[in-house]
Amino acid sequence: MNNIRNTFAATALLAFASWAHALQITSLSPQGEVAQVRQVVAKFDEGAVNFGDPKAPAPLVVSCSDAQAGKGSGRWISDREWAFEFEKDLPPGVSCSLQVRAGFQSPKGAALAANSYKFNTGGPFVQQVRPGTYQRIDEEQFFVLQLNGPATLASLQANVWCNVEGLGEKVPVRLLDGKERQELLKALRLDKAAEKEPLRYASLACNRKLPAAAKVQLVFGKGVVTPTGVANSIEKSFNYEVREPFSASFSCERENAQAACLPVRPMTLTFNAPVVRKLAAQVRLKGASESILPTLDKAEGDDEDAVNSVTFKQLFAERAQFTLELPAGFQDASGRPLRNAESFPL
């Protein structure tokens, strides 16, 4: 009986000692739901390999629901840190698991404690939006959302919307297709990429004309799904401001605010939005016996180039009276009429 007890105690002590000296993973990332994944990193509580050994085995086996997307290679960064690098960022809707490789041991003979880990990339999210939020937008602005993977058109239509200052309701989006979409993507040099992965590039517009100078949010809501049905769970907003109404302002150098323009200095008409060169060239500064043509702010270019100002640079007679006249139907390059047209002739 004593021999049996002694044998059992020795076995139990050996098992406890083996567990106590087992190699442990102290951290592994990512885990859970992570939107953007390119690398898996595992860290150990002590040296797991002889660092620099080209034959050092991988401690974990990586397998993903999308075998093609899950391709990659592992490497030891140090004797305590191992990384698995995917060939590309994982697309949305992919789940991966990591299992301890059977029989893995440290150089000291400590076996790696058995464990398993999981993570998934969740649903689609926006990697880049165009135009950028630092730019003022058009009243009928087109947007392109570059996603981390494909998203269904139906879920985009249902879960992306615009919030417009002054309106108490969501404004749905209109998905662009056909010629509108092709021309937009080509202008942004995204047409070739979109041909390969069309569902990664969402092209859309708020489904109403936006008020000038209004604040606008483009909202990528929860519920946008991949073709396999995996939905995103994080709402993301992009903040914009609509450009001001089209206007023109006259300026010249004066000795003081109440004085007349200095005759030896130029006079300038400035626009807050581009104007087609051919139209801007028709602005005239008219005196009692002459009509002066402007100098445009761009020295060269065809008639369809846009300019932001016109200048009258010649020497003017002292105390001469001039009238600044605009051509009929004066508008900016987007076709917007001049807000302060009643100020002209000036």
Results as ranks from 00 to 15, higher is better:
F250I: 12
T226R: 02
K236P: 00
V216D: 09
N272Q: 13
V160F: 00
T323N: 06
V307P: 02
S237M: 01
A15R: 14
A333Y: 06
L184A: 01
V126R: 06
D66E: 08
S334D: 15
C252G: 10
G122E: 00
K55E: 13
S78L: 02
N120Q: 04
A69R: 00
C206G: 07
H21K: 12
A111V: 15
E195H: 08
D79F: 04
A231C: 04
V225W: 00
A280M: 04
G103M: 09
P59F: 10
V62N: 05
V171K: 00
Q36K: 10
L218S: 07
Q127K: 07
A317V: 13
T311I: 12
N115D: 14
I77L: 14
V160R: 00
V144Y: 00
A213R: 13
S95A: 07
S249A: 11
F104M: 11
S78T: 11
S27P: 02
V41N: 14
G132S: 10
R136V: 12
Q31C: 03
T323Y: 05
T268Y: 09
R189Q: 07
A328D: 12
Q127M: 02
N3K: 15
V283S: 05
A328P: 07
E183M: 05
F8Q: 13
G103F: 14
E169I: 03
A35K: 09
K88R: 06
R208K: 11
A158Q: 02
A257L: 11
P150H: 03
E87A: 15
L90D: 08
T11R: 12
Q135G: 08
C162P: 00
R80E: 06
D177N: 06
R136N: 14
L145D: 01
P92W: 01
T133Q: 12
C261D: 10
D89Y: 14
S203D: 02
S237Y: 01
L210S: 13
L153K: 06
S106A: 15
S95Y: 01
C64K: 07
R181Q: 04
K236C: 04
W161M: 03
G52K: 06
L13E: 08
K108D: 14
K222C: 03
N308V: 07
L346N: 08
Q39P: 12
I25D: 00
L293I: 05
L147V: 06
A113R: 11
A110Q: 14
A10K: 15
L285E: 02
K179S: 02
K43L: 14
F104A: 10
E318K: 13
E139K: 15
N308S: 12
V264S: 14
E325G: 05
L346A: 08
P57W: 12
E87V: 15
E253N: 09
V40N: 12
A15T: 13
L28F: 04
S155R: 00
K179P: 04
G166M: 10
A259W: 08
R181P: 02
K278H: 10
A280W: 01
V129N: 07
S18A: 13
S155V: 03
R80V: 11
I292C: 03
E139P: 09
A111E: 15
S97P: 01
P327L: 06
G93I: 04
N120T: 02
G166A: 09
G178T: 01
F271I: 12
A205K: 09
